[in-house]
Nucleic acid binder design. Structure first.
Lengths: 220, 220
DNA sequence: GGCTTCCTGACGGCGACCTGAAGGCCCGCC
DNA sequence: GGCGGGCCTTCAGGTCGCCGTCAGGAAGCC
């Protein structure tokens, strides 16, 4: 998916850009409306992320223009907490969703996937691993039509493997992912989670690389 | 399309009437609530434009009455800038949209067309979830021929789930939807609403995803 | 065989979640 | 204007699932 980010705050913009890129999408980032118009005119985007307060005008005009021209590209509005009327106006002008600053990157990620999926019209992007059918956005796993439920930690682990198939992930890398930052684990908690994951998914899925870490099995 | 304009300001009223007529619709214009009731009782309108401050009372009562009687005619509220609470009440009472005075006639025209378009497809599409039959436009739910009544909050919640089947909705997303005009919730009100929703719809419908949010159950 | 690394069952604490009850607000009715 | 009822929020008590910890055993590696 290709997204255009229109945001003049450099700190926020960089964070958002990185997050979208981390999800495997490509991002262009501009800080002004005129630049945005140029980009939209010359490239096909699947999603626009639009800040409303920009140095050369308000973003709503751009949105209205696009919709008036029949452009139906999904638009997510980024807006500050106190600009209620802007949000309302934005939705009325044809925005698909909006995020109130400051927002969690996970929140952004969720909306992103929702919008992308809606736009694609597809049921969902599915990943197949062995006999498992995985819907990363909906956080669901199917085997032979039966759903498999994972807890938060189990899912975080599993997701890490699925997003980097074939790659060996060290314990440290996994723990970094499970525990938001700094939190140290001095027990074998990760091992335990791997064990529980295997119990639910079967033993061919996660493979031990002795002395190094874990990776997806070759059943994939 | 046939519209009823309920507005006591003669200058604004005339302008709105002319604009709607210019778009090729027919308009009736009244300046009082009692007259509005008479008209609605005796003719079928496709759209109501409702001012909230009228010489013989507040327009909200009329709106509530209509919705209570099952009337689903689209309603656009006309309201002054400073009456934020009225707008919230209005949307909760079942209005489809609103315009803040003073507004552009082009603005009016856009909303008008949006509403007309939205309700052009006559028979409402039905959504089936488990043994429930849902008519999103009419706000009705049937199980085995019996209707299930939801309160405003309950419906808002349920609608959110129905519109995004399979997707997990975080508390933040749900609350943003329930209280879209800025109010913050620091209690477990959302949980309580989910609880009541389950009591009315059955326990297979809304499913908890611990640590993440809620989603439609797989009974669907 | 001895050492290290890894696996997994068990368990207790904690926090997320659920739900009944109470109080307040708003609205319609008398 | 007072009264009653519906709806919403808040609060508190209780339940239960998840997670970290530990320990004993299994599996690799020399």
């Amino acid at each position: 998916m290709r997204a255009l980010l229109i945001e003049d705050d450099t700190i926020l913009g960089a964070a958002v850009r990185d997050q979208i890129a981390a999800e495997g999408h490509s991002v262009d980032w501009v800080t002004r409306l005129d630049a945005a118009r140029d980009h939209i005119g010359s490239a096909a985007y699947d999603l626009l992320l639009l800040d409303l307060m920009l140095p050369d005008g308000r973003g709503l005009g751009l949105l209205r223009d696009l919709r008036a021209k029949g452009n139906v590209t999904p638009v997510i509005i980024l807006t500050a907490m106190d600009q209620l009327s802007d949000r309302i106006e934005g939705l009325n002008a044809g925005a698909d969703d909006y995020l109130v600053k400051p927002f969690d990157l996970s929140e952004l990620s969720a909306r992103l996937n929702a919008v992308a999926r809606r736009y694609a019209g597809n049921p969902n992007p599915l990943v197949h691993i062995g006999d498992l059918e995985i819907d990363l956005a909906a956080r669901s796993i199917l085997r032979a039509g039966r759903t498999i439920d994972l807890t938060a930690r189990e899912w975080a682990l599993f997701e890490a493997f699925v997003q980097r198939p074939g790659q060996i992930l060290s314990r440290a890398q996994l723990e970094e992912r499970l525990y938001s930052f700094g939190a140290e684990v001095e027990s074998n908690a990760t091992e335990v989670h791997v064990s529980r994951l295997r119990k639910k998914l079967g033993h061919g899925i996660v493979e031990t690389v002795r002395g190094v870490g874990y990776r997806l099995g070759r059943a994939a």
